[in-house]
């Protein structure tokens, strides 16, 4: 398997009145073709920033400081605006967070499809457009006859989310990036969307990257999981190993804090402390104030993301300094 997308040392900040929020601080990871990658982290850990920076959709106060996003050998971040506009959506489609407000309230769904193909100068006639749009809507199990001529307010939250996915699939992209595809939906709809994404993955030749705060959804859907803590990737591993043998103390804590319905409540261990402010992140390893294995070096030096056994990657001094691997 080849890596389709290679993110190298991505650094992005947000400028706010209080200073700069260091939301993505040297992010590097590879995405294999036809794989599903989950970017998992708490709220405000900078996980959405990563995909915003990758797709050049940072908000106006966002700044990309450095980094490369190599897609088929081209650096997406270095492309001219017009060149990037052509790749965007045709090859890499992005479904943003806040699906509930992402459709123009005064336009029918069909017109959203129409605007999208017109933006990419695709010469489908009306019938072709209807046929293509219907095909994609059916793929996300919506009834095209009802949905195409509806206004967004006539659709439920889950339907809107699926319309966005159908819109994203319209030009048969190779990569589909989803930002929190299941947040703001009820649990049943969440399960439905996850099921749907699994089906799409099976049916289509597509690479999925998605961001979530819900590690259960990552477990359900992903091949590989990148765990983000305070703007850094702390662990990048296959989904199987992440759950079977997590390496980073934060990953362990994250898994330890999951509440299963039949779990023994006494075994649930929340991670002590609170996530740091990204305005003034801790020195060295950003997790050290909350880490039970913290050593002197953790306060001074930021641990690099290193590859350990079986291609698993972890950023922790426990591993780089030959420390206690069994911790």
């Amino acid at each position: 398997m080849n890596s389709l997308i290679k993110v190298e040392n991505l650094r992005a900040v947000y400028l706010v009145r209080e200073g700069t929020i260091k939301a993505a601080d040297g992010i590097s990871f590879d995405v294999q073709e036809n794989s599903v990658t989950a970017i998992v982290g708490e709220s405000a850990s900078g996980k959405s920033t990563i995909i915003e920076a990758m797709t050049r959709t940072l908000p106006p106060n966002g700044r990309l400081l450095e980094g490369k996003v190599l897609y088929k050998g081209k650096d997406l971040l270095a492309l001219k605006k017009e060149e990037f506009r052509r790749i965007k959506w045709k090859e890499i489609a992005l479904v943003p967070q806040a699906a509930q407000q992402s459709l123009n309230p005064t336009m029918k769904i069909i017109d959203h499809f129409k605007d999208t193909i017109e933006a990419h100068r695709i010469n489908w006639n009306h019938d072709q457009l209807i046929q293509k749009a219907s095909e994609k809507l059916e793929m996300v199990r919506l009834n095209p006859d009802a949905v195409l001529y509806s206004y967004p307010m006539q659709l439920s939250g889950g339907m809107k989310q699926r319309v966005l996915i159908a819109l994203a699939l319209l030009l048969d992209p190779e990569v589909l990036i989803l930002d929190e595809p299941t947040s703001a939906l009820d649990v049943l709809t969440q399960a439905y969307i996850v099921q749907l994404l699994k089906e799409l993955k099976k049916k289509l030749n597509i690479t999925l990257i998605f961001v979530t705060h819900d590690i259960a959804i990552a477990a359900e859907l992903a091949d590989k999981v990148a765990v983000i803590y305070a703007g850094n990737i702390v662990e990048y591993n296959s989904v199987f190993r992440i759950f079977k043998n997590p390496l980073h103390p934060y990953t362990k804590g994250l898994l330890g804090s999951i509440m299963a319905i039949n779990a023994d409540m006494s075994k649930i261990k929340p991670i002590p402390g609170a996530p740091p402010s990204l305005l003034t992140p801790p020195s060295g390893c950003r997790f050290h104030p909350r880490c039970e294995h913290a050593m002197d070096i953790c306060k001074k030096e930021k641990p690099p993301l290193i590859t350990v056994e079986d291609g698993a990657q972890v950023a922790c001094h426990l591993y780089s300094q030959g420390g206690r691997k069994d911790a």
Binding site: R86, W89, D115, H120
Partner: peptide, 15 residues
């Protein structure tokens, strides 16, 4: 958000 999503879809500024 629908403005941002329109930009993401690559729509032209005039549209």
């Amino acid at each position: 958000d629908f403005i941002r999503f329109a930009e993401i879809r690559g729509l032209r500024d005039s549209v």
